[in-house]
Nucleic acid binder design. Structure first.
Lengths: 228, 228
DNA sequence: CAATGCGAATATGTATACATTTTAAAGCAA
DNA sequence: TTGCTTTAAAATGTATACATATTCGCATTG
């Protein structure tokens, strides 16, 4: 693995997980020393993160981790709505019935209510689902945009703790979407996606607004509105 | 202007304009010597173009200009459909009536039928329109994706020569979209955008298929289907 | 004659030295 | 005391030397 890739993956994970909080200053030398690579691959890694929108230039000489507030989450879901509805529609008409039928079965028989371990299984399934969508959509431009949203979605997920009830409901929603795609029902696939995103957003926002006033729980790294 | 920016802009323009044809091998040293910059900024420029999807890694050590064929154009318009319809909808509900009302007037009074000079004016108007959409949508994720599609759209436009009739029709279509947004009519804005993209795609494909068999006209740099 | 392996050449990946620009601090003047 | 100018330090931008990996060609062997 190249040094620039290691640096990128490490920083990406640290930003997504909140180890590097919004507003944290990213200095080339500081980070390259810390991660044990030279400035050249570090610059490449930082450049990629800037393109991703996870780091932004605050002034001519200072890079900071991008803020991520409630408004950003709402923007993100606006974008997801557009992209994932289109993706679901396209997947439904591309004829990958077997793949999505099998995925629907997997979602049907998943039991995320059975504790923490099952939550990992849930996210593994989601990954499989996303990969299947990407393959079925077969459109580099759309898939590129979808992947970008997932990069930011990881930050939103971290702010909202996994909720057992929500995981169960989301599993059922995905089963419906997968089934609709398998059956070639583009309208249902798109509308079920819309409904799913509605619930997912509501759940995330509820989780955050329940936390933020308290401050007593674990640190959220949620950027105050309007400074992202 | 930084050397890496100069290199990026130059290569971007050369790829979009077809000077660097699909399949052309991009060597770091070769390009850095040609453009008079060192390898470091050249690597940065190439990295950005890879992210853009205009250059891709063909093997471990050779980068080539990405192909761009009829399938890619259709994929691109699928993505645009999704993104621009969503953008039009959002712009319509954000309340920038004055801006889009003024744009609608500008489209109404534009006269692209008055020769080549007016074609430049047409594209200037389109740029103003795109900028207004970006500002109104006010969603970094969506706008980022939109900008990406425009990067590739430039290649499609080049393959299809400007058609006087099409420019006139497109102007009218944009006037309708802008008016719909100004009036807050999200449905009409979205559907008019859909119709516009349908006509635009048809025009581009017609222009290409009319050219390709002939080969007698100017070189199109159109990648044969399936090798992009 | 073909295939495989070894070696040399070349291109990319990384580190670092050097250049340039920006920012901040200090000193001087109003 | 405040503001402006100058200067110095530190960070980014660029060039280049060095390390590593890949590819192509040639030779040897089956």
């Amino acid at each position: 693995m190249r040094a620039s890739d290691r640096a990128y993956v490490t920083l990406l994970d640290e930003i997504q997980s909140g180890v590097l909080a919004p507003g944290a200053v990213i200095g080339e030398v500081e980070q390259s020393v810390r991660l044990g690579v030279s400035r050249t691959p570090m610059r490449e890694a930082i450049g990629r993160l800037v393109t991703d929108g996870l780091i932004r230039q605050q002034s001519a000489r200072v890079l900071v981790v991008t803020g991520f507030d409630v408004d950003d989450i709402e923007s993100l879901f606006e974008a997801r709505r557009s992209l994932e509805e289109a993706a679901a529609r396209l997947a439904a008409v591309r004829g990958y019935s077997e793949t999505f039928s099998s995925l629907a079965d997997a979602f049907d028989t998943a039991h995320p209510e059975r504790g923490v371990l099952a939550a990992d299984a849930y996210y593994t399934l989601i990954e499989r689902f996303d990969a299947a969508i990407d393959a079925a959509v077969n459109n580099v431009y759309l898939v590129q945009a979808l992947r970008n949203t997932r990069t930011h979605l990881a930050r939103a997920r971290r702010l909202a703790r996994d909720n057992q009830d929500r995981l169960v409901a989301s599993t059922a929603e995905h089963a419906l979407i997968a089934r609709a795609i398998a059956e070639g029902n583009a309208d249902l696939a798109a509308h079920a996606t819309h409904v799913h995103l509605h619930h997912a957003l509501r759940s995330i926002l509820a989780s955050i607004t329940a936390d933020t006033p308290g401050t007593a729980t674990s640190p959220t790294n949620l950027t105050p509105k309007g400074q992202s």
